[in-house]
Design a binder for these strands. Structure first.
Lengths: 212, 212
DNA sequence: GACATAAGCTAACGCCCGTAAGTCTAGAAG
DNA sequence: CTTCTAGACTTACGGGCGTTAGCTTATGTC
């Protein structure tokens, strides 16, 4: 993770061959703007440039257009999320039930700690217009695959260990489980205060994983 | 529902005492812009005015600012959604299980048929900034209460009829059920094509209502 | 030390936005 | 027929946006 740039002195130009560093700084600046709590509309090409301490057109050396910046942020944060889920999985007791709750709660925590990030990752707003040529469908389809795969594995382990009675369709079960998690995560990322019981996350996991 | 205005002749001024009609036409124009498929950013004060065939400043006679238009649209569509759920409930066979699936699927259908509307209703994007004085927290809190109440009733009927084993917390169970529905509905409203099995909606309902 | 070039800048264009201030006019009231 | 006013309109300001075109200046190489 690149440390956020907070508009200090005029900014030292990068050395030759290190121009690519600015790319990471631009992403970090966009992320910082997001985390500052305004909504995603505050992340404009110009505001990102200001935050990074560069002139707006300098961005074009690294990104084709404004949606491309958002895509890069989303891709990076998907990796961050995946890493968080993996860490939760690895640090938990090795039994499948514990791992399932650990991964599920890590997912929910991410949305609660970084609501703005979660919204651009899954809220669909920044999605480029259909005639955008700089972002392909493949870019969009590949988002979040790694994180979802981990969920499939853990849910599969629950069924293998006999603590959940799955159907014949593990993938479908995992989709349903993720949708439930997403519903809560998204709501937490959107609403000022989420009503409902505190343990609603665990309830969702129990019900959708069909734990015995 | 007011029929959409498509910028015909210069527009006849409303009669005296009927100035309020324009308010409905403004809401209809905003809804039409939304349904045209662009994202919610396309619904600006000026674009709404163009769509309604009026001058931009004329809106200020009826709405304090741009977020207030969105709030009115959301409030109206929440009523539309509630009506759709009620209709599904009333037209279904009177047994609780059938009604539960009818209401749940009506909810999911709304999101699929009107993805843009669903996104502004639950996507949280249009939410005014904290220092906005024209929209109160009470306005936001009261949104969707009627629709949710119906869900609580139907789920309660399932438990009463003994086809679902609820916990001691009906309200919490209903929240969990709604969150699952919302997860799927939102994803359908956001993504170009939703992966996963076709019956994932029914699976969510079965699992989260704890149907026997 | 000259010079080639990567890295980033300045200036500017055209567009759309929200909103304020003041003006016109059709139709109801007398 | 006049008068009044609700229900609009015109004009304008200031600002932010994405993006293009062309220029500057450090940095590494010879």
């Amino acid at each position: 993770m690149v440390t956020a740039v907070t508009n200090t002195e005029p900014r030292r130009r990068n050395r030759r061959g290190e121009g690519g560093k600015l790319r990471d700084e631009i992403i970090a600046a966009a992320l910082a703007l997001l985390d500052e709590g305004g909504d995603e509309r505050a992340v404009t090409l110009r505001s990102v440039a200001r935050k990074a301490g560069i002139a707006a057109p300098s961005i074009y050396a690294h990104f084709a257009d404004q949606p491309s910046i958002m895509l890069a942020v989303v891709q990076q944060e998907m990796d961050t999320l995946t890493a968080a889920l993996r860490e939760a999985n690895d640090n938990a007791d090795p039994d499948a039930r514990t791992r399932l709750f650990a991964v599920g709660n890590a997912y929910l925590d991410f949305a609660q700690v970084h609501p703005q990030r979660y919204r651009i990752m899954f809220g669909g707003l920044w999605t480029p217009s259909v005639d955008d040529t700089s972002i392909t469908d493949a870019d969009l389809d590949s988002l979040g695959v790694a994180a979802f795969t981990l969920l499939v594995e853990v849910l599969g382990a629950c069924i293998e260990e006999g603590i959940a009675h799955g159907s014949d369709d593990l993938y479908g079960d995992a989709v349903a489980l993720w949708l439930g998690l997403h519903g809560l995560a998204h709501q937490r990322a959107v609403v000022r205060k989420m009503p409902g019981p505190a343990d609603v996350g665990d309830r969702l996991i129990r019900a959708l994983a069909h734990l015995k």
